[in-house]
Design a protein around this nucleic acid. Sequence first.
DNA 1: AAATCGTATGGTAGCGTTATCACACCGGGC
DNA 2: GCCCGGTGTGATAACGCTACCATACGATTT
Lengths: 368, 368
Amino acid sequence: MTRRNGSKEISELPPEDRKQRPTIVDIARRAGVAPMTVSRVVNDSGYVSREMREKVERAVKELNYHPNGLARSLKRQRTHVIGILLPDIANPFSAQLVSGIQETLVERGYSSFISVSERSTAREHAALRAMFDHRADGLIVATRETKSGNDFLLRLTEQGLPMVVVGRTLNHPRVDRVTADHWRGGYEAVEHLISLGHKRIGFIGVSPINGAGLRRYQGYLDALRENNLPIDEKLIVGPAAQSGPGYSTQDDGYAGMKKLLALKKPPTAVFARNDFTAIGAMCAIRDAGLRIPEDAAMVGFDNVPLAAYTTPPLTTVDQPTREQGREAARLLLERIEGDKTRERREICLDCHLVIRQSTTNKNDNKTV
Amino acid sequence: MTRRNGSKEISELPPEDRKQRPTIVDIARRAGVAPMTVSRVVNDSGYVSREMREKVERAVKELNYHPNGLARSLKRQRTHVIGILLPDIANPFSAQLVSGIQETLVERGYSSFISVSERSTAREHAALRAMFDHRADGLIVATRETKSGNDFLLRLTEQGLPMVVVGRTLNHPRVDRVTADHWRGGYEAVEHLISLGHKRIGFIGVSPINGAGLRRYQGYLDALRENNLPIDEKLIVGPAAQSGPGYSTQDDGYAGMKKLLALKKPPTAVFARNDFTAIGAMCAIRDAGLRIPEDAAMVGFDNVPLAAYTTPPLTTVDQPTREQGREAARLLLERIEGDKTRERREICLDCHLVIRQSTTNKNDNKTV
DNA sequence: AAATCGTATGGTAGCGTTATCACACCGGGC
DNA sequence: GCCCGGTGTGATAACGCTACCATACGATTT
């Protein structure tokens, strides 16, 4: 009983009851071996005789020993923890991304801890700082780009923290990148509308701040251009400029669509930045007493599970989110366990259009 | 240059370039003081002269020093990290809960790391184990109850890990609990339907496994009983029994409603276990060519942001999720920083019914 | 018979912090 | 002149673990 002091508390409990978590020394004593031998058994490394191994394993079980991850990580200079930074959580995209990441990580013996920035740069900083200080072995970052966020990420990279970004950019030679081809997804969505005869096609959800970086929006612009349709800025509406990183919700969709419907010549079809925005917009159309798709067709982006259950079911662009997660984790582990300084790598996966009744009701109008 | 060996790599880089993160010793050397003094400056503890403090602060800034959280936590026996265990992530409930938790935590100087069980007990175990091994100071658990999950949680509690459960139970004298009054929420939802004249009211989303534990469902049963309406088991349909913990999605809602509509006497109103289930059910009603609420009224639970944007907007029960998060964090910190062995405490917050057009279209039929 | 090798175990030293004690200085009160 | 309390600084020893080296023994090999 050389452990701890705080003398008063000790006397209140019988010494054996003090639920101190056992350490490797406790196990060693109990099994009558050296701590080093316990370590070898627990980590299954080096030579241990059957006899010793059994003694140790018995002691481990009896005291319910689990190694202290802090001490182990400190010594090994490896935590086997990957930090995942998400913009927000209420979101099928986040869920599938995490699911894909974890799929790869668990089979390689890593755990992952998630943090959420909630569109606040202060929170983003705090989360990154916490991950860095607790020495995560690497980071997967899926937050939206901001100036100060980027600076911070670059600083961490410079300090040697391996990093992969998903669905965004970060310009650094040692930061890998995984995305889906949002440009093409947007392009095909708009081509689909054009092929249905639409000529006035709106876009909801782009804010002046980050329109340049939004590739699905660039796809929209390019599809119009290449089909010789005019780009009418009145048909492009975004969420009210806000302090945080760009984002767009059902509220923005509703408000945006109202603006479009108030125009002298409203669009006959609308491409929304994401499915939630599209859902909000569809509400506005319905509230205006108009029909979808006859009076206004709608396309979303992301193919969230709910998109099959809107009224009418939503045409949208599917991106392989889970696979992006898997690839991101793979790249990160490659860098962590292999060459930390190898040149950046980029992986771009394909999107594809899912046609439902919000653009055409030629199919019979059933959900499933 | 006493640091590290791996001799070959060293010679390839000029020694100054080795991006080793600086330690407290590096700072001490640079500032010409003892490590202890650096520690005092960094932690703002004990006596330090202005002169020393400035020297140290300069060195800290120049080398961009940040203390190693592992070492610090190991020494202090405190990580200042709280683990949050969520059932899944694609979910406004999770988002608001986390948001509330973090609100409280950041102002008290803690960080939080999230893990997701994704309805797999194996994942749940792994996540808990990782949190425990990395010595999180406490846990907030919002996963669904399962036998093996409960056992595991109880073991961790017995080992002295402070814990609060949210929206579920865990029977242990040292585990606090935060919930909303789902029973009353369910009760009021059903009373609302009864007051509109409904007599055949269905329930979607309960599986035989955990119906007993689902308090909103008990509220449904009790409301029927106390209004002398018969409980008809044919009107109660759940997701197909499955291995994992109970859950219910739009898919279950759609399938469940189809079953109900196929009955000889289908219900005139349905209470769904959650909003997503309700949304799926509404699709099934529409696909059957029926009107909401005239042919079938619908009530959900949770008041997710999307509920205001369904067709028609969904009557549902709102629970104060963010506040549950705040309370959970408060209780946990109280236990961590105060009396670790104090008796369990329970906090139950009120729900309230939000009436929209899926039960009555007397209001004018606008979304906002 | 000596050198070599695979197997088995333990000792020691640190990973990067900080609690604790030790010491040293200064001014003031007796 | 001595003691005291407040102030300032550093040395030392952990926290719990594992990399590394040292040792030891039996079985080959030369």
